[in-house]
């Protein structure tokens, strides 16, 4: 039995639309795989020790909250990028995803710097992109469908065309409603507009993180879980979208 240390960044500020369900899901699945885990909440002012972290999670927040977070996160930017380069599993949803880019411009034209880990930007518009969404992605070599719910005013565009999206949009809007891209994927980092929350209904994405975490500890996870309920919920949304 191994112990996994999961970290949630700014749970009081960045936690929308049931985001915490993603961590609940990882914790339960780790338990079912026979492992133990803990969740540490990091709030503004707390220090962050990347040596002892197995996964980093940050959820969505409003503009006011994103600004507070950015002030704190700016000092941790370089060590975060180093950890990402070394393969740290990171999941950033909605507002947290937007923060990874270079800047966010609100619909009133106010510009807010991002962390600049990746070369993309987000343009806020009044009209929100809302609804169920279906995307296709490849995880551990297998093509998978991923479902969720999106609700964002921001349109995200890649400046660096070499950036890889998390998946391609089959139904719904994704990054901007135009280029069929959804989210970002870099090594073991995923940024995405999908909440729902994302992981419970997409057990293959949850396991992508769990396998990556285990691999970094030097072992493989062999057990197979009963995902009949998860798959049922997944298919239910898919059927709804495909009519």
């Amino acid at each position: 039995m191994a112990h996994f240390h999961l970290v949630q960044l700014y749970p009081n500020l960045m936690n929308l639309y049931g985001d915490r369900g993603n961590l609940l899901c990882l914790q339960k699945r780790l338990e079912w795989y026979g492992h133990d885990s803990s969740i540490e909440n990091i709030n503004p002012g707390d220090s962050l020790d990347f040596e002892h972290i197995d996964l980093l999670f940050m959820g969505g927040g409003s503009e006011r909250e994103q600004e507070l977070v950015l002030q704190d996160l700016a000092s941790k930017r370089d060590s975060l990028m180093k950890a990402v380069e070394e393969g740290l599993p990171v999941l950033c949803i909605c507002g947290a995803y937007q923060l990874l880019g270079e800047y966010y411009r609100s619909h009133e034209g106010k510009e807010m710097q991002g962390l600049g880990l990746f070369s993309f930007f987000t343009q806020g518009l009044k009209e929100r992109l809302t609804g169920n969404i279906l995307i296709h992605t490849t995880l551990n070599g297998v093509e998978e469908s991923v479902v969720g719910f999106e609700n964002h005013g921001g349109r995200t565009y890649f400046i660096d065309k070499r950036l890889q999206p998390f998946g391609s949009v089959i139904k719904g809007f994704g990054n901007n409603g135009e280029d069929k891209k959804e989210g970002i994927r870099y090594k073991n980092l995923l940024g995405s507009y999908l909440h729902g929350p994302l992981l419970p209904k997409n057990p293959q994405v949850a396991d992508f993180f769990i396998k990556a975490m285990a691999e970094r500890k030097g072992f493989r996870i062999e057990r197979i879980l009963d995902d009949s309920l998860e798959n049922y919920a997944h298919e239910q949304v898919k059927r709804k979208l495909m009519g």
Binding site: G21, L24, C25, K28, G196, P200, K201, E230, A233, Q236
Partner: peptide, 15 residues
């Protein structure tokens, strides 16, 4: 209901 799967998962992951 239409989202029976989601509510079932909610209780499953609640233990």
């Amino acid at each position: 209901g239409q989202r029976s799967g989601d509510i079932a998962l909610r209780f499953k992951y609640a233990g």
